[in-house]
Every structure is written in C-alpha cells, then in structure tokens.
Design a protein around this nucleic acid. Sequence first.
DNA 1: CCTCTATGGCGAA
DNA 2: TCGCCCTAGAGGC
Length: 292
Amino acid sequence: MPEGHHLHRLAAALDEAFAGTTPEVSSPQGRFTGGAALLDGHPVVEAFAAGKHLFVEFAGAAYLHVHLGLIGQFDITPLVAPDTVPPAVGAVRVRLRNEGYVADLRGATLCETATAGDVEQVLGRLGPDPLRPGVDPAPAWARIAKSPRTIADLLMDQSVLAGVGNVYRSETLFRHRVDPFRPGREIRRATFDAIWRDLLLLMPIGVRLGQIVTMADQVEDVLGEGVDTSLVPPLGGTVSAWRRGVVGGAVERRYYVYKRQGEPCLVCGSRIRTAVVAGRNLFWCGRCQRRR
DNA sequence: CCTCTATGGCGAA
DNA sequence: TCGCCCTAGAGGC
C-alpha cells in the first residue's frame, strides 16, 4: 500500500480530521504508551508527509513520526455520533480520537515522538519528493548521473528520490522503456527528465485516487474527469471523500509490468520478467526495455 | 493449524 | 546479501 502518494494522501486526511483540535491520544496495544502520554492533550497543528514519512505536529509537545513500512495502516473513521467510538480491533499502536474521528495505526515499522530537530534530520536525509510543490530534482539527477548503481536500485533509494516505491519504479521504467539494469551514470539527462516529469504527473493522480495508476488509458480517463494533478497540498475536501477517492469508485487495478511475471508484455508480447533488485521484486520487459 | 505474501527499511556479517 | 521487525489476509493441509 504505502508509496509516497499514500502517505501524502493520509497526511491530508489526518490534517483535515485533526488539525486545530485536541485529540485524545492513546496506545490500546500498549507499545506506545509513553509517547501517547506525551502527545495527549495537545492541539494538532498540522499533519504532513515527506517521502514515505508521516508527521503530525502537536503544539507545545512534539511531533508524532510514523513510517508505515510494508504493512502499516493508519485508518481514519468518521464517528457517526461523538459517543459511538468503535472498539480498537487488533494491534492498535496509536489511536487519535476527537469529536468527529478515530484514527488507528497498526503495523507501522516506525512510530515515535520527535523533536523539530529530529524532523529536520529526517527531511535532510531524503532526496527530492515529487509530491512536494516546487521541489528541485537537481540533487536526484546529480546522484544518478555519477552512480555506477543500476537505475532500478537508485529509484528505490529514498536519499535519491523520496516517495518512489516498488510499483512506481517498475512502471515508470517500463513507461520510458528504460533498461532497469542500466547504471545511473549511463542514463541520459533527457531520460531522467522524462521520468521525473512522469512522476509529477502520476504521483498526484495516486494521491487523488488513493491508488497507483500508470496505464495510459487509465491516466487519460482520470485526466478527462478533470482531476487536478498540479495542486498537491492543501488538498481540501472531506475525509470521507478521501476514503472514497475523489473521482468516485476505484479504478481497475492493472499495470504494465508490476506483478505480471510470465504474462505477455502488452506492447511486444514477450514474457514479463522478474528479479529481486534492492531487496524487492522488480518487473520488466526484456525486449521493450533495452538500451535506454 | 501452517506458510506465504505485501506498494519498506534497518542492521549485522 | 541476509535476517529481522511490524500485521493482516489468503491459501494450503
């Protein structure tokens, strides 16, 4: 679930639900009792995301710093009435609750309180995040252009580009017919620019829909429905709208190469291949993605 | 019951 | 490169 689009969407929804309120903070599971006690009773200033990191600022106390990892979830539920609070189901590490919403965090790989200095340190470790308005891709290009590591490896390195994960990696490399095993220093500037521009298009769509969409026909459909892909935060809208997806209803989940190993390439028909790169399953077409 | 998988990332070796 | 952390759901026996 969580690549950068997911965290930015989540941050927007948390901001919508909790900013300006003073939620009760608890740890039903008991593994974040101290942190919850520190944050409880302090107003939420804002929630924001950087790459795959999520921060919630509590005035006069600290930041809540969350990384969902591979399997984490932070579910926001609108309360039908203020006193109809659902019981915590499963391993809820953190629960935020105000008059209108309950948000439950489960399975996060990281959940801690952080100072402003800690937050700065995390932000400083991250490469440019395509979902941050006005961000400069130059540092990412500088790293890639001099690296002997493969482009597939580099795209997953959060200090090179923040927020790109395993689906966007395979899919953007396919969209631009780039050989995933090409060293960064052999990637042409024009190719990097095209990939970056593509992320600027695809990731906001992911934020808007709560889903990764990469296939050209689906991207066209989304754009045809007038989804604003330029404006990232502030996102506006209600939390329930976010949960539904602004365009209404999920887009059919299909990709060019992701998880399609052994199936025919939709462009050339050759079998989609897979291999573990940077610890994750990479998918690509060995015929379409050559020499770029 | 068990094993496997998942859109991450860390530290040990 | 490997093992491990986090959790839930699917599938096999």
